[in-house]
Design a binder for these strands. Structure first.
Length: 362
DNA sequence: GTATGCTTTCGGC
DNA sequence: TTACGGCCGAAAGCATAC
């Protein structure tokens, strides 16, 4: 039986949540902003609604630039309310989860799902399910979402992108080639600029080119594993399952420093509240880590990191303050410029449950 | 040569 | 003319092991 995979994506999520809460703004340009606090306007646009996008505003744009572009309009700038979006997201994900075989959330506003069983493998049934899911999200939360359906995760994701905003795109198995082939290969999930460049060098420009190239040619350039992945992705035959995610694979906190600096002790001092916060999050979740990283964003916005991995999982971040200081000193010492932002990340996570199950076998 | 694991950087939202 | 967050997971690069 053909698999039926879906991808659901909430439209301009943060800004749409703010519109639902205050419908009087919904025809105006709405910008949900991340204010860094360094100066009045420092920060970036997190999400903009479609009226704002028509005026050239997009995610990641500096707030000061967006404001200039919006002079003379009745634009509304709203600071980010992350907990609110998190709560809405949870409700939406529950609505989807109860209508599908399995849900895999991949971000605050998007998820993959499988409805092979729920649709009995029939794309017409699956379309009805997707219509119903979109209606249920709208009825419950007042939010529009876009959904894509296809025979693989990659096809479903690309289909939902093509349907945005407030749309549904169904790519039945027989339509996969026609849908994928014309797209540039860089659009393919898992193909970054390096791979795209390497593919260009062997004459592959579109996904169709990639689907048609001989296996031997791909293997010669990328090795068997990557070659197989690329071929499956390009033909929509990738069979990566949709699986509920158990927990995050990393946690991080990042801040904008009050002033640019390359003084590691000053950075550690300013990071202390973030460290304490991260420590509490880990303790309350019962999560231990083996890898500790310091991150710096330099004045030219390039990123520098330093990390170390412990042999044994650490359950209390406060034990790592000296190591964090060492990483920050190494980082600032090797940085070509001052730091504008700084952060901490922990990864290689485990939980108490993991540890128990491991020790059972010892 | 390929697999694996660690470090650093990249890129999406 | 410039302007510039806070997360996350994946990709890339490298070293080492087999």
């Amino acid at each position: 039986m053909d698999r039926v995979i879906g991808h659901v994506d909430l439209d301009y999520f943060y800004a749409q949540v703010e519109e639902v809460e205050n419908p009087s703004i919904k025809d105006k340009p709405v910008l949900v902003c991340v204010f860094s606090g360094r100066t009045e306007d420092s920060g970036v646009v997190g999400t903009a609604n479609y009226p704002a996008r028509e005026l050239g505003i997009g995610s990641g744009m500096p707030i000061a630039l967006a404001k200039r572009r919006l002079e003379g309009t009745d634009a509304v700038l709203i600071p980010m309310h992350h907990e609110k979006y998190e709560a809405v997201s949870e409700k939406v994900m529950d609505i989807v989860r109860e209508r599908v075989d399995v849900l895999e959330q991949t971000g605050i506003d998007e998820a993959f799902f499988e409805v092979t069983k729920a649709s009995a493998g029939d794309y017409s049934n699956a379309r009805s399910l997707a219509v119903e899911i979109r209606k249920a999200i709208l009825a419950s939360e007042g939010l529009t979402a876009s959904i894509g359906l296809g025979r693989s995760r990659i096809v479903a994701k690309m289909a939902s992108d093509s349907a945005k905003p407030n749309g549904l795109a169904v790519v039945a198995p027989g339509e996969t080639e026609g849908f994928l082939d014309p797209l540039p290969v860089i659009k393919l999930y898992g193909v970054g600029p390096k791979t795209a460049q390497a593919l260009a060098e062997i004459g592959v420009r579109t996904i169709g080119d990639l689907a048609a190239i001989e296996a031997a040619k791909l293997e010669k350039r990328f090795g068997v594993k990557t070659a197989v992945y690329l071929h499956e992705a390009a033909t929509g035959t990738d069979d990566e399952p949709v699986a509920e995610r158990q927990g995050a694979t990393q946690f991080s906190r990042i801040i904008t420093l009050k002033m640019d600096t390359r003084d590691a002790d000053q950075v550690l001092d300013e990071l202390t509240p973030a460290l304490d916060d991260l420590r509490s999050r880990l303790l309350s979740k019962g999560v231990s880590f083996r890898t500790l990283s310091a991150m710096g964003i330099l004045t030219d916005l390039t990123i520098k990191t330093r990390s170390r991995t412990y042999e044994v999982p650490i359950d209390d971040l406060s034990a790592c303050r000296d190591d964090m200081q060492g990483l920050l000193r190494d980082l600032t010492g090797s940085a070509s410029k001052e730091l504008r932002r700084a952060g901490i990340r922990v990864s290689s996570l485990s939980t108490r449950a993991d540890q128990t199950s491991l020790t059972q076998f010892q």
